[in-house]
Design a protein around this nucleic acid. Structure first.
Lengths: 255, 255
DNA sequence: GGACGGCTTTCCGCTCAGTGGGAGGATAGG
DNA sequence: CCTATCCTCCCACTGAGCGGAAAGCCGTCC
């Protein structure tokens, strides 16, 4: 379709996603030049395609900057992640927040990372690094440890082989983490103590789909201190997780 | 780019969006045939493009069905709508919910409709038809009336010219609605009484950007009854709206 | 004021990526 | 066994898409 291709083999569809993928949480608005550069496309190509996407609602133009369009947001709401889990979980997350006033997290595993599906926090609690849609290491977060404990062997091995240090309290010894994962199975919850960010502790429990008991997500709380009240938090989490699991449809798995 | 085009002039980018646009809230998972049909593309073309999108994360395959991919959800979170307003507003919405236990709505105007940006509801309140990402008429909802009252003249005219009846209580006389919109300006809030769905009333207030006072969104509550406690609800809404407006960055408008 | 640097926009000839009818499998039901 | 309904793959044909180059469009600095 073109005479002179800088990257032959790249399809138009991949270019479209390259353009959209040029945006991230730190780059929500990009000039044409920046957009082209980050997408790895020639300026003229980026210009034409971006113009087309604006027409389709995939991008929007604000002055001389491009931003991701509303249409993409609309479509994103239909994505499977969000559709079932988040919707079902939302009221339970509120209950949890009301009961504890701690930051509430709903997360699932995406490869070897935690993917935060929802977060609920007031304004006066512990500062938390997570963002909805954001990813963090599995071994440094409460929800991550839960998800890791119930992840397939190959994922556990891959993660244990590379335990990045984030704070002085991050667990980087595979043996110690493996022992903790066993405890998660035994006791039904995981915790972290300043392993992701100083001054923040967390507890988390698995969310099991009611129909078959499969762990589909994790539910967690972030608090400044776990020394007292942990049992109460775990109890609240387990009630909410059970509620979510029971309300969950039994979405067929990939064939 | 092809020898035999069924619809010459349609770009690949438009076909990509046609495929994604084939999904909606009622069609979250589609077979290839259904996908092709709804997208208006030949089967072979849909098959090839869908396969490519799966590789790019824009679609996912579940058995013999396609669903919108996680990548689209990620990208959607970066869209301007969601990014600023929702994030800033979230804690205030919780406060409102905690204070009133009514369904809380954050909405903005999209053309001649209300676009619901966020919704927060418990499990035991009035049944509500709104969905996050969903659109409803401006003249039948509390947030809609607020947004309409502060919309440009041509929007008001377009809406007043076609007041669709939804319930027996829907206001369909332009004169009566115009009078109500004037009251919204005067009193600072709007209300509906069973105009969208039987048994549901709503109050709503504008969210003004702190820097310039422009109305950027509306904040509303849905309750079974407005006869008593309305003043209290309006007060709570105004406090929250002011808080949101003050925390809002002054995002430059289109040039 | 006029030359410069960084940005966006447009032009246009070249060509290969994308197209889609149709053949071929796979599976289900009669 | 045949028919119906999906999904997958093949492949000759060609115009949609490519991107270097050049032209606009600001500011800013000498």
């Amino acid at each position: 379709m073109a005479g002179n291709l800088s990257t032959p083999g790249a399809s138009v569809a991949s270019r479209v996603f390259a353009l959209l993928g040029a945006f991230d949480a730190e780059h929500r608005a990009l000039s044409l030049t920046a957009l082209a550069e980050r997408a790895g496309l020639p300026l003229a190509t980026a210009h034409r395609l971006a113009g087309e996407l604006v027409g389709l609602g995939g991008l929007e133009r604000r002055g001389d900057r491009y931003v991701v369009g509303r249409r993409v947001w609309d479509l994103g709401l239909l994505a499977s992640v969000q559709a079932e889990l988040r919707q079902v979980a939302a009221p339970f997350l509120h209950d949890l927040y009301a009961a504890t006033h701690a930051t509430v997290h709903l997360a699932e595993r995406a490869g070897t990372e935690v993917l935060y599906l929802d977060r609920l926090s007031g304004r006066a609690t512990v500062p938390v690094v997570s963002r909805v849609g954001g990813r963090l290491p599995l071994h440094t977060t409460g929800v991550g440890k839960v998800l890791l404990a119930f992840a397939p062997d190959e994922v556990q091995r891959a993660v244990l082989a590379d335990l990045v240090r984030v704070t002085p309290f991050t667990i980087t010894q595979p043996g110690r983490l493996r022992e903790q994962l066993r405890r998660v199975h035994r006791e039904g919850f995981a915790q972290t103590v300043e392993e992701m960010s100083p001054g923040a502790c967390s507890v988390a429990v698995p969310v099991r789909r009611g129909s078959d008991g499969e762990v589909v997500a994790a539910l967690g709380l972030v608090v400044p201190d776990l020394r007292r009240g942990r049992a109460r938090l775990v109890a609240a989490l387990q009630v909410a997780a059970a509620g979510i699991g029971r309300s969950l449809p039994l979405s067929e798995s990939p064939g």
